[in-house]
Computed example of a mutant assay.
Amino acid sequence: MRRPTEAEIQEAVEYARASLAMEGLPLTAEAEALIRARLGRQISDAEFLRRAKELATRE
């Protein structure tokens, strides 16, 4: 599987930002960095889920 381009990652981040905005929630800088790390294949799915759960329970 190929690595997504920066434009594709940016599009995914903007989609996430819009989805959260519809629920009245912001996309934090930490959450955006986490999304970018996963899409850029810097962290595994398991690590992404672990850290996302931490963020969700902390905020």
Results as ranks from 00 to 15, higher is better:
Glu59His: 04
Pro26Ile: 11
Ala7Pro: 05
Gly40Arg: 15
Leu49Asp: 10
Ala37Val: 00
Lys53Asn: 15
Arg17Trp: 08
Gly24Trp: 11
Glu30Lys: 10
Tyr15Ala: 12
Leu20Tyr: 02
Ala33Phe: 00
Asp45Tyr: 04
Glu47Lys: 08
Ile35Val: 09
Met1Asn: 03
Ile35Gln: 04
Met22Ile: 14
Ile35Met: 11
Leu49Asn: 14
Pro4Ile: 07
Ala56Val: 10
Glu47Gly: 01
Gln10Lys: 13
Asp45Pro: 00
Arg17Glu: 11
Glu14Cys: 06
Arg50Ser: 15
Ala46His: 04
Leu55Met: 12
Ala18Asn: 09
Ala29Met: 08
Gly24Ala: 12
Ala29Lys: 09
Glu11His: 08
Ala46Arg: 06
Ile35Leu: 15
Arg17Tyr: 06
Arg2Asp: 12
Ala12Cys: 04
Ala56Asp: 07
Arg17Gly: 11
Glu14Val: 05
Leu49Phe: 11
Arg38Phe: 10
Phe48Asn: 03
Glu59Asn: 11
Pro26Trp: 07
Glu30Ile: 07
Asp45Leu: 06
Glu30Ser: 14
Ala46Val: 06
Glu8Pro: 09
Glu30Pro: 07
Thr57Trp: 12
Gln10His: 07
Leu25Ile: 11
Glu23Asn: 11
Arg17Val: 02
Arg58Gly: 00
Ala21His: 06
Ile43Thr: 04
Glu59Arg: 06
Val13Cys: 01
Phe48Leu: 09
Ser44Arg: 01
Glu23Cys: 11
Met1His: 05
Glu47Tyr: 00
Lys53Pro: 01
